[in-house]
Design a protein around this nucleic acid. Sequence first.
DNA 1: TGCGTTCGTTAGAAGTTATAACTCCATCGA
DNA 2: TCGATGGAGTTATAACTTCTAACGAACGCA
Lengths: 220, 220
Amino acid sequence: MAQAARTPRERYRDQIRTEVKALAREQIATAGASALSLNAIAKQMGMSGPALYRYFAGRDELITELISDAYRSLADAFRAAEADGADLPRLARTLRRWALDDPQRYFLIYGTPVPGYQAPPDTTAIAAEIMAALLDTCARQPARPGPGAGSPLDPHLARHRDWAGDHPAEPAVLRLALLAWTRLHGVLSLELAGQFNGMGFDPEVLFEAELAALTVLPDC
Amino acid sequence: MAQAARTPRERYRDQIRTEVKALAREQIATAGASALSLNAIAKQMGMSGPALYRYFAGRDELITELISDAYRSLADAFRAAEADGADLPRLARTLRRWALDDPQRYFLIYGTPVPGYQAPPDTTAIAAEIMAALLDTCARQPARPGPGAGSPLDPHLARHRDWAGDHPAEPAVLRLALLAWTRLHGVLSLELAGQFNGMGFDPEVLFEAELAALTVLPDC
DNA sequence: TGCGTTCGTTAGAAGTTATAACTCCATCGA
DNA sequence: TCGATGGAGTTATAACTTCTAACGAACGCA
């Protein structure tokens, strides 16, 4: 997890920081990110108020770090699945399990944006890592036209492929990755937000149906 | 808009309330809902602090009312489109324009949920109205198997159709409405959140591609 | 054994939401 | 036309919050 901290002081410092973050995650999970209170965390840890400013520059830095940790966690889950030889369905189910495990952590990444906020570069780097894992997995899927094949989407993506970085994916793979992202996020975010509550059907069935529509070969 | 207020007092009261809400929307649009400050609004209106408590029970009630207004606004946009004979593509573009017009208003409805929050009954009634408009529009679409036809989704929806209320839609219509919702939300929410920033492609092309995949007949 | 860094403290400034108590004035009824 | 009622806005205050400043104490390294 954390790289070896040499001095005992650094070890202690890291321990406090992770404890603070754990309590913060707990608080966010039960009352939302906007209810996060440094003071409350300090009290829970038995120290009073401003002590936490030795460890975090402020509330914003703590939240930023939690966001970065969330990205890191998802990227790790994806890499682990990939290393295990997962195909797109397995990667998607990894995503769903990861999201259901802590919905607010999912929303830390894909939820309502704060208008002014700009993610730090290291966070966007992890985001690119996640996208790369998705692209890799999509590239290993059997050949397809797939959903949206006839549309102007493929030529458009062929011309605008900056986001794929140096990934040598053909447009059909870019399209599959993009549609997998948006469709799975569509189902998942609405489920996590409770928008399906009281509607009666099983969100997992809907998720699996979207997954099938993405991967089943004869789509046209 | 507002029903006729008889007494001048009530008229004044309504005027203040709408002015407060306008400033609140402005604040949310520029700094997010968590940055909404009653005090700041009061100052902007030239009155001091606690005066606003004559008009709103508190911050929560103001936000709740803004959420309800957002639902109402979307429902009105949908009903207007429906009255204009819109089909699913036009309804979808109505949604997109409505969302782009004020992204934070979209997130007030479909964004990160606050764990404890329970929407008041009148709000869920408007949500049902929105769903009804979507179902009506989908029912008028030409016959299809459409996306995900072969999956277990149709029989599942045939058994769990509480959310359709008394709408006499066949399972294929339920499926189309549900997939339209989740897929369009998937593309739209990621666009509004800025997740596509720097990726190069045009979100509108992606949106239209998803729309085409939903409506083009020969999907299988 | 010292000395410097780091930790945690209290004090305090500047914000916030929200309540209480008070004044003032418009409106409504007699 | 007068007067009681009630709504509007005010200040004061409590209880929060984030965050800075200044101090003391403890820890670890040389």
